[in-house]
């Protein structure tokens, strides 16, 4: 291990980590929105939309992100859709993550007994109030573990972005190995930076799970 090399590489990795985190967070935010939308559509039982959402969820859960990205990045421009790498990365992550988030939210909503809703109505709460004060807090605490797992999963998945030539951590490492053959240092920094990104989120997730678990309600 050569520490001068590592010091030299540090800024490159820092920049790449910034990109990884930025695209990751944007993609995850979009995925959460898509997930909420899908859950809402599936609950509302609007005929055609519901089937469409189910088809989307099956398609996105049963295909790898790398193949989705290839299709988005190399396939779509051929039918006249202009794309760039950053937009593709975010779109791909959102496409993949949307279904995972939808499943997490759905499990939360489904875990709530219908009696909760009925009781809220009979107490005179409006539909909106029921959602806000009765359903959401409970569904949230049930979904948290799956939600946290999804966030970590999606951040990990960002590692395939190097395939569409985004200069993320993976790309930087591969590039540096190819250029200077400093394999050990490059891989060491790669592992360290992923740990720096993922460990705090993993710990935060555990904390969040612990804090929301107190919202116990039957079994």
């Amino acid at each position: 291990m050569n520490w001068t090399v590592i010091r030299q590489y540090l800024p490159l990795y820092r920049k790449a980590a910034g990109l990884t985190v930025r695209i990751g967070l944007l993609g995850i935010a979009a995925a959460i929105l898509i997930g909420l939308f899908c859950t809402a559509v599936q609950r509302s039982r609007i005929p055609v939309f519901r089937q469409l959402v189910s088809a989307y969820i099956e398609l996105s859960r049963n295909t790898p992100l790398l193949v989705q990205l290839f299709f988005l990045y190399y396939g779509l421009p051929k039918i006249g859709v202009p794309t760039n790498a950053v937009a593709c990365g975010i779109a791909g992550l959102a496409f993949l993550g949307g279904s995972y988030m939808a499943e997490a939210f759905r499990s939360g909503v489904e875990a709530i007994d219908i009696i909760q809703e009925e009781s809220a109505y009979s107490l005179g709460l409006s539909r909106g109030q029921t959602l806000r004060y009765v359903i959401f807090p409970q569904a949230f605490s049930v979904s948290v573990p799956a939600f946290v797992a999804n966030v970590i999963f999606l951040l990990k998945e960002t590692s395939v972005f190097s395939a569409i030539s985004l200069m993320d951590l993976m790309f930087t490492a591969k590039d540096l190995i190819g250029l200077y053959y400093k394999t050990t240092e490059s891989l060491f920094l790669l592992v360290v930076f992923y740990l720096l990104i993922l460990l705090p989120i993993s710990l935060l997730g555990t904390l969040l799970e612990r804090r929301t678990r107190h919202a116990g309600f039957g079994t």
Binding site: K156, S162, M170, A173, I177, L187, L199
Partner: peptide, 13 residues
């Protein structure tokens, strides 16, 4: 916690 891609690089390179 490691992306599978990182593990692949660790083992392959």
């Amino acid at each position: 916690i490691m992306p599978q891609m990182v593990l692949l690089f660790l083992v392959y390179f």
